[in-house]
């Protein structure tokens, strides 16, 4: 089973990397970009086939390691 965990910065957390990318896009002439926030995507393969179990494992992975919940939110998707 394949899954994806997406980690994003909570709103209100300063994201200097996103700001730098935003500046670069503007200097490249890409129009209409008003803001950029950078996050992370983890594509994960799971051995089992039970969706509930998979979701629980992914949630555990995100809480324990993939996200720092002080500053980040995460979303778990089974693909």
């Amino acid at each position: 089973m394949k899954a994806r965990v997406t980690v994003t910065l909570k709103s209100g957390i300063l994201d200097p990397q996103g700001k730098a990318i935003e500046g670069a896009l503007k200097s490249l002439g890409v129009d209409g970009v008003s803001s950029v926030r950078q996050g992370k995507v983890f594509d994960i393969e799971l051995a089992g086939a039970d969706p509930a179990q998979a979701e629980a494992a992914l949630k555990q992975a995100a809480d324990k390691l993939l996200a720092n919940t002080v500053i980040e939110n995460y979303r778990v998707e089974l693909l």
């Binding site: 957390i13 300063l14 200097p16 990397q17 730098a20 720092n68 002080v70 500053i71």
Partner: peptide
């Protein structure tokens, strides 16, 4: 901070 022994987090320097 990551281990939970101290609160908060160290982010990228403001001026990168």
């Amino acid at each position: 901070c990551e281990s939970g022994l101290l609160p908060g987090v160290l982010m990228r320097n403001a001026r990168l």
